[in-house]
Simulated scan of single mutants.
Amino acid sequence: MRDIDFKRHRRLRRTESMRALVRETHLRTEDLIFPIFVLEGEGIKNPVASMPGVHQVTLDYLNEEMKELVDLNIRSVIVFGVPNEKDEVGSQAYHEDGIVQRAIRQIKEDTPSLTVVADTCLCQYTDHGHCGVVREGDIANDESLSYITKTAVTQAQAGADIIAPSNMMDGFVAAIRKGLDEAGFCHVPVMSYAVKYASSFYGPFRDAAHSSPQFGDRRAYQMDPSNRLEAIREAESDVDEGADFLIVKPALAYLDIMREVKDRFNLPLVAYNVSGEYSMIKAASQNGWVNEQEIVLEKLTSMKRAGADLIITYFAKDAARWLNQ
């Protein structure tokens, strides 16, 4: 075969040390953001049935959870609230003593090294489960912006390091940026859910956050999964309005979108590895169909390879343990 001219690509794959030497994409514990669901009450650590290993916790369990993250070298957490009371405008979302605001204050006091991201939406707090105010059966975009902005400001007042609005109302980044600046929080960045699809992968999250819509669906404000150019328009609007990070959600089925957003915009890109993606792997692993560690690390690495700088993932603790090994 010596007279045949061909490339010897396998030279760089022969040993583990050689493969590590030429590895192009690296996943680190610092890249991971852990989502946590905080409940009203005391002494509660509820397992989420559709998300094995994920719990809703009350504030008295919060320090234990945060210490575990620090020990694993996970440096960021995103906080979701599960309130006792809901109403038509989601007033507990922007109450200064709302569950998320109290959780943020506690985390920043007890674990100041952690970066705290506040999910900024109304869906967990409204009695109808939509991400904005409902008027005559429709989501009132501009009225909703005022409540969402109030929510962002109270979260910043509580000590949130980053505001992450997920509501998909038109103009939400501009409204929040203006509200934060006027309240003296010009230093607090906005991590926008810039590209958020009306996906079927969100079901387990809605169990955990008690946020399923009570009528209709969210297709009138979240994006059609078939659309690519619309994603670029959405991201471009948020960049123009002052976003500091861009999120693509979900991640795994939208790696093409992630790559295109990364190539077009010079901002940190965040992949949201959503609940349905998590639960499918957990179920397959529990049935012995896949090697959980290998498939999770491969999946998260694919998101980094597609352009993600950070990954919001329920696998953060597991992934960190494996990476730390």
Rank of each mutant, 00 (worst) to 15 (best):
residue 1 M to R: 15
residue 41 G to E: 01
residue 12 L to C: 15
residue 127 D to S: 10
residue 179 G to Q: 10
residue 288 G to A: 06
residue 221 Y to V: 02
residue 45 K to Q: 01
residue 151 T to F: 11
residue 226 S to T: 09
residue 43 G to C: 11
residue 220 A to T: 13
residue 147 Y to L: 02
residue 219 R to D: 13
residue 195 V to M: 03
residue 167 N to W: 09
residue 87 D to S: 10
residue 299 K to C: 01
residue 54 V to C: 08
residue 153 V to A: 09
residue 314 Y to F: 05
residue 178 K to H: 13
residue 317 K to L: 05
residue 181 D to R: 12
residue 70 V to P: 11
residue 67 K to Y: 12
residue 126 T to D: 10
residue 139 I to Q: 03
residue 118 A to F: 04
residue 148 I to C: 08
residue 180 L to G: 05
residue 62 L to I: 06
residue 174 A to L: 15
residue 139 I to Y: 08
residue 171 G to N: 05
residue 324 N to K: 14
residue 153 V to L: 03
residue 256 D to G: 11
residue 120 T to F: 06
residue 295 I to A: 06
residue 320 A to M: 09
residue 103 A to G: 05
residue 323 L to V: 12
residue 227 N to A: 09
residue 191 M to C: 14
residue 11 R to H: 14
residue 111 T to M: 14
residue 28 R to G: 11
residue 140 A to C: 11
residue 15 T to G: 05
residue 20 A to N: 15
residue 43 G to M: 05
residue 83 P to V: 05
residue 46 N to F: 01
residue 3 D to T: 13
residue 135 R to H: 14
residue 214 Q to S: 15
residue 106 Q to S: 10
residue 45 K to F: 00
residue 36 I to N: 02
residue 118 A to K: 04
residue 294 E to Q: 13
residue 274 V to E: 00
residue 148 I to F: 15
residue 128 H to K: 03
residue 84 N to S: 14
residue 11 R to V: 14
residue 55 H to M: 00
residue 99 I to D: 02
residue 139 I to P: 08
residue 115 T to Q: 13
residue 67 K to H: 14
residue 118 A to V: 09
residue 31 D to I: 06
residue 82 V to R: 01
residue 243 A to G: 07
residue 36 I to W: 01
residue 239 V to F: 06
residue 201 F to D: 00
residue 64 E to M: 12
residue 170 D to E: 08
residue 220 A to N: 12
residue 249 K to Y: 01
residue 13 R to Y: 09
residue 168 M to E: 03
residue 27 L to Q: 09
